[in-house]
């Protein structure tokens, strides 16, 4: 299989890009792929914290680009899972420390060693986003069921199309099924009507996401929470598996039994 470079982006900040990057990267690694997650948010790095690898940073991507180290010295191996790596970026620099050409080169280098390169993009539509996306072939757009987030997702999808990223898939995050049911939240079908783009995942709003960020341990490492299952399903769909979408509106009781049923005894 040819290596795949995927940028994870959203336009609006705070919708769950970094959480999605960490969890999808972990799930891809668990299913046997060699994966590197790259923090593309120079100056506001967070992927290291979400993945719980902040204490292991020696060199950053910016160090490699400035010639202070080789690119492979920036790779942090996650000891909890085989085949999972992370490249941190600099916290004390600004977006200007990286150029689009450099990101294209970094991605070309990483393609030699990895099955998947996931790049966590900064919010916004400026240089930071463009750099993060420069070396990617494909894109995941994360949104939440809110007017502002969907509007920004539409803008980002337009930019990704103009940058010829393909395929571009949508992840709808933080869905609260009860609110959707009583008509007080946009449903996934509403969001798809508006954005006219392929859906690859629906993540329920789940307290376990907050807990996993507190602990620095991606949910997909083992947790069987609804969000964890949803992220694992995205990873499986990325690798081409045909996994039905979770019924988010079903009642909480007996959830695991239904998941087992719905997914034919799990993946």
């Amino acid at each position: 299989m040819a290596p795949r470079v995927i940028v994870v982006t959203s336009g609006k900040g705070g919708v769950g890009k970094t959480t999605a990057t960490a969890n999808i990267a972990a799930a891809l690694a668990i299913s046997g792929n060699k994966v590197v997650a790259v923090d593309g948010d120079v100056g506001l790095r967070n992927l290291d914290v979400i993945m719980g690898l902040e204490n292991r940073i020696v060199y950053t991507l910016v160090d490699a680009l400035e010639g202070n180290c080789r690119l492979n010295q920036t790779l942090i191996k996650d000891k909890r899972v085989d085949n999972l790596f992370m490249i941190p970026t600099a916290q004390s620099k600004t977006k200007d420390a990286v150029t689009s050409d450099q990101m294209v080169n970094v991605c070309a280098e990483l393609r030699k060693d990895f099955d998947f390169v996931l790049i966590d993009s900064p919010a916004g539509i400026e240089a930071g986003f463009r750099n993060a996306a420069a070396g990617a072939d494909e894109a995941l757009v994360i949104t939440t069921p809110e007017v502002s987030a969907v509007r920004d997702a539409d803008r980002i999808i337009g930019l990704l199309e103009s940058m010829e990223k393909s395929p571009i898939f949508l992840v709808v995050n933080r869905i609260r099924p009860q609110m959707v049911k009583r008509g007080d939240m946009l449903g996934v079908s509403d969001v798809l009507d508006i954005l006219q783009i392929g859906l690859i995942g629906m993540i329920p709003d789940d307290e376990n996401v907050v807990k996993s960020a507190n602990e620095g341990k991606p949910l997909t490492f083992g947790d069987e929470s609804r969000a964890s299952v949803a992220f694992k399903n995205i990873a499986a769909r990325i690798t081409g598996e045909n996994i039905p979408f979770m019924n988010l509106e079903a009642p909480q009781k007996g959830f695991f039994a239904r998941i087992r049923d719905a997914f034919g005894g799990g993946r």
């Binding site: 069921p145 809110e146 007017v147 969907v150 509007r151 539409d154 609110m179 959707v180 008509g183 007080d184 939240m185 946009l186 449903g187 509403d190 009507d193 508006i194």
Partner: peptide
């Protein structure tokens, strides 16, 4: 409010 959100989004986008 969900329908209002969709109507507003359609208009804005």
């Amino acid at each position: 409010s969900g329908k209002q959100a969709k109507g507003r989004l359609a208009f804005i986008i």
